[in-house]
């Protein structure tokens, strides 16, 4: 047990917290970007515009059926071959945004579809245009339905930032590895600290979401 006391010094803790900040930073940026892009793609796919919706649909399906790790490797190690070079932070954010946008687009599309088509028809019958009906009647209802799957997707995203440790992004997991690499006795204390830190961030998000769902519903 003494290894715990030795491992949990302020210096190590601060080093980990700096990593947690990188994790949160990457997560936040990716969540915001992929929510915007994903919503746009999801709506494009839903409206069934000829040609463009099909193309968007294909891209979404291809992307979300690939492992994120592969996209990350491709972005960091593969894309430089065609002249696109990024540092680990930019590569992590890009790969996560592409992947999560596809996942979110799918949530948005099925969320809109789940709202009874009668709603749309009714709104149109009341004289609203297609876009008005979508914006005023369908989307707000769909959004409420989408909150739980969106939140679990965001939680997945936070957890998935740990994958970026392989491209040497100095996030939480990478820093824990640096610490226990220097003193192997710190291995278990570091894994405990990792588990607690990820848990606190992810669980806090799900609590906030549950609250949001209550007030929205």
């Amino acid at each position: 047990m003494s290894s715990f006391a030795e491992a949990y010094t302020w210096i190590n803790f601060r080093f980990l917290l700096e990593g947690l900040w990188v994790t949160v930073e990457v997560s936040l940026v990716s969540i915001i970007l992929s929510f915007i892009i994903g919503s746009a793609l999801g709506i494009v796919r839903y409206i069934r515009a000829p040609f463009i919706s099909t193309i968007v649909g294909i891209i979404i399906d291809l992307t979300r059926n690939l492992p994120l790790l592969l996209l990350l490797f491709f972005t960091y190690f593969g894309l430089p071959k065609v002249g696109i070079r990024m540092d680990p932070l930019a590569a992590a954010i890009s790969a996560m945004t592409v992947f999560e946008s596809a996942m979110i687009a799918e949530i948005i599309r099925s969320g809109i579809q789940a709202v009874d088509t009668g709603q749309m028809e009714g709104a149109r019958a009341c004289g609203l245009t297609y876009w008005q009906a979508l914006r005023v009647v369908v989307l707000p209802q769909a959004l409420r339905k989408m909150i739980p799957p969106l939140v679990s997707q965001f939680i997945s995203l936070i957890k998935d930032t740990s994958l970026a440790t392989i491209i040497v992004l100095p996030e939480l997991l990478y820093r824990a590895q640096i610490i226990y690499g220097q003193n192997t006795r710190y291995m278990i204390p570091m894994f405990v600290a990792l588990a607690v830190m990820y848990f606190v961030v992810c669980y806090a998000l799900s609590l906030v979401a549950a609250r949001l769902e209550k007030t929205a519903g």
Binding site: I11, N12, F15, E18, I178, I179, Q182
Partner: peptide, 8 residues
């Protein structure tokens, strides 16, 4: 080449 945890 070793990361100094104190100074980063």
């Amino acid at each position: 080449g070793l990361m100094d945890i104190k100074s980063g």
